[in-house]
Structures are given as C-alpha cells and as structure tokens.
C-alpha cells in the first residue's frame, strides 16, 4: 500500500508496512535522524514531531494514519516560535547528552505557538511529557521562559 504525505514541505511516498510507526519511516527510510527513539510507547517524547502543526508521538503513530498530512521534524522547524526556542536553548545551554532535546524543542515550539504569556507553571506542565534522563529540566524551563518573553517583546 502506498502512503503519501509531506515531510518538511517535501512530498514523500512509502510502500512500507502500514502499521510501521512514523518514527521509523522518518529515521530509517528518510534518514532524518534528529527525531529520536527513546521508548516506543509514548512515554518519553524523544520522537516528537508536528503532524499538521500538532506535536505528536511518532513512535505510536502508524504511518498509514498520516496519509495526506504535513509533517515537520526538527530538521524542518521554522517560524518565529522555533527561532525563539532554539536561540534560548543555545544561549542557556540546555543540552547535556542532547538525546532528548529535539523532542523538547518540538514540544516547546508547539506550546509557544499555542500559548501566549504562559506562567511558569504552564511551562513546566507543558514540558512534563518529555523525559530528560540528564535532568536538564531547570534549564528547559528557563529557556522556554526566555523564548516566551522574547516573543512578547
């Protein structure tokens, strides 16, 4: 069965097992490796991508469910929210091992696209689904705060 969608604006078609999670199509077929595998069961957020603008867990998204969808990965992230988030991430030096960080940045970008003037509590809650085993959480919160403030300015 042939399944078509766009990834970072480029049309893509795959003939793979329709039950294969989108994560493995993105990584193993398209070789877009910024999106990571952490758990495979929607627990960690390392695999977060945008599907039609909504942050989603690609590890539990069967590829046949994204027929016709627009998918954005870390490699194709753009727009003012993404720029603000990535600038804050770099300035505050959030990453340690870095493995979870694509997912963190996708979630933060999606959150700030939806939410103006978030409180600190909103920020921690929004980022709660993304595990970081290096526990960079305090810097994640600071970076989302900074990005939010810079978008207000």
């Amino acid at each position: 069965m042939s399944i078509s969608f766009t990834v970072n604006g480029t049309p893509r078609t795959t003939d793979t097992d329709p039950a294969k999670p989108l994560l493995w199509v993105i990584r193993d077929e398209l070789k877009l490796t910024g999106t990571k595998y952490g758990c495979g069961v929607a627990q960690c957020g390392a695999c977060t991508v945008m599907i039609d603008g909504v942050a989603s867990r690609s590890c539990v998204t069967p590829v046949d469910s994204v027929e016709g969808a627009e998918i954005t990965t870390i490699e194709g992230l753009s727009g003012p929210e993404a720029a603000a988030v990535q600038a804050a991430w770099t300035e505050i030096e959030v990453p340690q091992c870095g493995y979870c960080q694509s997912g963190q940045i996708m979630t933060a970008t999606s959150f700030l696209t939806e939410t103006q003037n978030p409180t600190d509590e909103d920020i921690a809650f929004a980022m709660d689904g993304n595990l970081c085993r290096c526990a960079t959480y305090t810097r994640i919160r600071a970076a989302v705060r900074k990005a939010a403030d810079s978008l207000e300015a």
């Binding site: 910024g34 990571k36 870390i74 490699e75 990535q86 991430w89 990453p95 870095g98 940045i105």
Partner: peptide, 11 residues
Amino acid sequence: VPQKTNGTAQF
C-alpha cells in the same frame, strides 16, 4: 550545543 539544538548531532 548548536548541533544538539538543531538535530544534527550524530549519535
């Protein structure tokens, strides 16, 4: 840090 912020870091 830059490569761990834009998805290009190679693991």
